[in-house]
Amino acid sequence: MDFYLGLAQIFGVHTLLGLSAYVVLLTGQVSMAQAGFYAIGAYTAGAMTAMFGLHILPAIVIAGLVSAAIACIVGFPALRVKGLMLVVATLAFGEMVRLFFFNLTWQVERNGDRVGPNGAEGFRSIRYFPENGWEVWHVTVFIWFVVVVVMGALWWMDRTRAGAVLRAVGHDETAAQSIGLNLTAVKVGAMTAGGFIAGLGGGIYAHTVTHIEHGVFGVLLATFAIAYPILGGLGSVFGTLIAVLFIQGFLIEGLRFMGEWRSLLFGALIVLAMNLRPHGLLGEHAPRLKNLFGAGPARPSDPLSTKEAK
């Protein structure tokens, strides 16, 4: 049972990671910096509980805020570049964060032990959950509570003008500017929100594994972060959730019995999924319940018209 609860925890934190990339991706920006924000959140939240004895809730909120602040600062210069250049710039930022934590040694005395980040060895003993008698299922429920809150907030945001504005910017920046949208504000805003969510996710992640080290937060994690919303589709937050379940549940855990063949199949299945559903598992457009269960993207709504924009 604990195995499945642990798996559910992984799904939870990865959903947060994916959602952080989802917000940024709505504006058309492919950010490889999400793993970096996640790392900042993980180290910050770990420090808050293990080093300064805070409760888990303020710890992850602070982690989110710190990540958001850094995402906001990084957003201004990074979002001046587009496309591949942005990928490279954000990738560089992610690596910078990773190397920062690789070199960071900052320990304090606590109950006779030295705790804190210790360079390459990482940050051990982030033991808030076991120390406070949380059982595995408590932690799982806590994680999913946070996930539901974040998903709910994003779901709501998608239905407001802010959601439409993010999508408008993602579709056509020139047109978005022509109707009076401030591109910098919109993109940096999305980046900041993404940073907050990644920080929350990282903060929780640190506590589920109790030991974090720089190697986890590399390019692979950044790739996963961006792969979830792309694979799941940008229609709604549920696309990201489905993609996390598909990748973490089916491709990584479900295919474990295949041994060495798994890695090969992993790539092949993602290529297959993207070919069958080029706009993501749940499609690109705002979700309607019938679309979730119907075959194929249910559009165009006007049966007589087959014209595409442009």
């Binding site: 003008r161 439409a164 504005v165 999508r167 408008a168 993602g170 579709h171 056509d172 020139t174 047109a175 978005a176 022509s178 109707i179 009076g180 949208l181 690109e284 457009h285 705002a286 595409e308 924009a309 442009k310």
Partner: peptide, 17 residues
């Protein structure tokens, strides 16, 4: 240059600054 990913009404909505 429309926002093809939005509905007709949403295209007007985003322009209401």
């Amino acid at each position: 240059r429309l926002f093809g990913n939005l509905t007709v009404a949403e295209n007007l909505w985003v322009a209401q600054n």
